[in-house]
């Protein structure tokens, strides 16, 4: 009889296995960390992040990208100046990864559920400067929070594309373009931990997208009562407000890599700005306000092909300075102390 019962039970056996959730999570992190270590010989995580930015200088890039990622590369370079970067040890990296992954806004910004590559460039005053997945972030180790970041990426998730299309269809002008058969190119996304000002945007925003709508052929087109010949329209989208900033339908004057080098040269040539740099200014990303001596780079650009200016904000201790730079004329046209931006 026992044999019969045994086989009855065998036939009907069901096991509720469940899961140990913390093991699932921790194993995932461990495996991805192992993958980072696997790849570390082939690719230095730091250099990958820098390479991504440096590659911009070899191809024509729209204003937004150079403008914003110049801040990133400055931050990367500055990371070495300010912190004399030390070799990161594993526990510290794990801790930073954990902090980054627990910030849903940052993870949404990089468009990924996990951190693939990470390198601590240095730590000062409990603030870690981190190159992560090709971007730069600042992590406050004391409060265990992501203090600032500015992420620029070209990979759009399906959800982001859907959101953008929704916004484009809400706007009568862009909907008209789409109805005329314009094709959509998703150029780039920009996310920051606090609102950033871009000259193309109406308001500062913490998340923006750049797309271009291209008609199949150049043709006379009327927009806002203006007739012009254009086949490409560059669209800035404020993702936070879900609205479109003014549409650029004229050829833009882009700020390229040589301009950036010239800006830095102009700062060094001017005694006022050079003195600030000599006092130990560090170069960081556009939004970081945590280091004691910083340069926050904000660039505004005019559309004229013969005039290029840049506005820089410098911070030394708790004092802010503005320097307006005439790039073409290679001079600082205005310098003075300003209120906190």
């Amino acid at each position: 009889m026992e044999e019969k019962i045994f086989f009855e039970k065998l036939e009907s056996i069901k096991l509720e296995t469940g899961e140990v959730a913390s093991h699932r999570r921790q194993l995932r992190v461990a495996l991805l960390h192992a993958r980072v270590k696997q790849n570390s010989d082939a690719r230095n995580p730091l250099m990958k992040g820098v390479d991504n930015v440096l590659n911009l200088f070899t191809s024509k890039q729209p204003v937004w990208r150079v403008m914003l990622t110049s801040a990133v590369i400055i931050g990367v370079i500055g990371g070495f100046f300010i912190t004399r970067s030390t070799t990161a040890n594993e526990p510290q990296e794990k801790r930073v990864i954990s902090i980054l992954q627990s910030d849903p806004q940052f993870m949404n910004a990089i468009g990924s559920e996990d951190i693939s590559t990470l390198k601590i460039l240095g730590i000062r005053n409990d603030i870690a400067t981190v190159a992560v997945d090709g971007t730069l972030a600042f992590v406050d180790l004391a409060s265990e929070k992501v203090s600032s970041y500015h992420v620029i990426r070209e990979d759009f998730t399906d959800a982001e594309k859907a959101q953008i299309l929704h916004i484009l269809n809400k706007n009568t002008i862009t909907r008209t373009l789409l109805d005329e058969g314009a094709s959509t190119k998703y150029v780039g996304l920009s996310f920051a931990s606090s609102p950033f000002q871009n000259s193309a945007m109406i308001y500062p925003t913490d998340s923006a997208a750049w797309v271009s709508l291209t008609l199949s052929e150049t043709q006379p087109f009327e927009l806002n009562g203006v007739t012009f010949y254009e086949d490409r329209f560059n669209i800035w989208i404020d993702l936070s407000r879900e609205e479109i900033s003014p549409i650029e339908y004229m050829t833009y004057a882009s700020l390229n890599a040589s301009d950036l080098v010239e800006i830095l040269g102009v700062l060094r040539a001017d005694s006022r700005t050079s003195a600030l740099l000599d006092e130990g200014a560090a170069l960081i990303s556009i939004v970081d306000l945590h280091t004691t001596s910083t340069i926050i780079v904000g660039v505004s650009n005019t559309n004229s092909a013969t005039e290029k200016t840049a506005k820089l904000i410098l911070k030394l201790n708790e004092t802010y300075y503005e320097a307006d730079v005439d790039i073409v004329g290679s001079k600082v046209t205005w310098f003075g102390e300003v209120g906190k931006p």
């Binding site: 913390s22 093991h23 194993l27 495996l31 960390h33 192992a34």
Partner: peptide
């Protein structure tokens, strides 16, 4: 060499 799993005793015991 990768990580020390920090699984709460109670979670494992419950399972």
């Amino acid at each position: 060499e990768l990580v020390d799993f920090d699984i709460p005793d109670e979670e494992q015991a419950e399972a």
